[in-house]
Every structure is written in C-alpha cells, then in structure tokens.
Computed example of a mutant assay.
Amino acid sequence: MAEEKSKVGFTNFAETWNGRLAMLGFVIGIATEYMTGQGILQQLGLM
C-alpha cells in the first residue's frame, strides 16, 4: 500500500512558492518607494 504525500502544510512546494512571492513583494515595495519618494507608512497614510 503506497503512502500518499500530504499537500497541506510545510511542504517543499509551498515553501518554494512562498519564498518566491515574498521576494517579489519585497522588490515591488522597494520599487514603489523609489518611484513615489515615500515610504510604505506614508503611502498608507499612517505617518
């Protein structure tokens, strides 16, 4: 009887995509700050 691999939780597939999307979000955040001249808190109206 073959064991089925879990598709939920901390799997290599999920962690790989989580890392990729985090890097993409970081780059977009830095680019937005550079283009607008405002930090993220200023953009959100918190400062």
Rank of each mutant, 00 (worst) to 15 (best):
M1W: 12
A2K: 12
A2M: 13
E3A: 14
E4C: 14
E4A: 14
K5S: 11
K5Y: 11
S6D: 08
S6W: 04
K7E: 06
K7W: 05
V8N: 03
V8C: 08
V8M: 10
G9D: 02
F10T: 05
F10Y: 14
F10M: 09
F10K: 06
T11P: 00
N12Q: 15
F13K: 12
F13P: 00
A14H: 12
E15V: 13
E15G: 07
E15P: 00
E15A: 13
G19D: 02
R20V: 07
R20C: 15
R20G: 12
L21S: 09
L24I: 05
L24D: 04
L24A: 10
G25W: 03
G25M: 07
G25L: 02
G25C: 03
V27R: 11
I28F: 05
I28Q: 10
I30P: 00
I30W: 04
T32K: 09
T32R: 15
T32C: 10
E33N: 07
Y34T: 10
M35R: 08
G37M: 02
G39V: 01
I40Y: 06
I40W: 09
L41H: 11
L41V: 08
Q42T: 05
Q42S: 13
Q43Y: 02
Q43L: 05
Q43D: 08
L44R: 06
G45M: 00
G45C: 02
L46H: 09
